[in-house]
């Protein structure tokens, strides 16, 4: 079963925005949608490495700021004609706090 760890309050992320979680193997972008759902994706577009955390969030999609690749945050898959995928991580929101898959700490320990 997935273990979760608290990374902060939902209010720390602007609505339709993102914040970063730094791990030993790169940053994770944690997004908040207009309806207060939270997604965690690798902060690196598979195209040219753009920081997805800086993209415009619309619905459950995010558009990479560098070349407008659009990703479905549920699956991490690029949509439309582009092909590629970024890693996604389990998150939960409980009592206004954001919890993320604790194995992200483990993976930095392993590194």
């Amino acid at each position: 079963m997935t273990q979760f760890v608290d990374i902060g309050s939902l209010e720390d992320i602007p609505v339709q925005g993102a914040r970063l979680v730094r791990t030993a193997q790169g940053c994770i972008a944690v997004f908040r949608t207009a309806d207060d759902r939270v997604f965690a994706l690798d902060d690196r577009c598979p195209h040219k490495g753009g920081p997805l955390s800086e993209g415009i969030v619309h619905g459950d999609r995010v558009t990479c700021p560098l070349h407008n690749w659009v990703f479905d945050m549920n699956t991490g898959e690029a949509t439309g004609a582009d092909e590629g995928q970024v890693g996604t991580y389990a998150t939960r929101v409980e009592k206004g706090r954001i919890l993320i898959d604790a194995s992200l700490i483990a993976r930095s320990n392993a590194a």
Binding site: D12, R19, L20, V21, R22, T23, A24, V30, L104, S108
Partner: peptide
Amino acid sequence: AKWAPMADFTLEA
């Protein structure tokens, strides 16, 4: 503070 990562797991490690 809003410009920095909200959590840093490299530090925790």
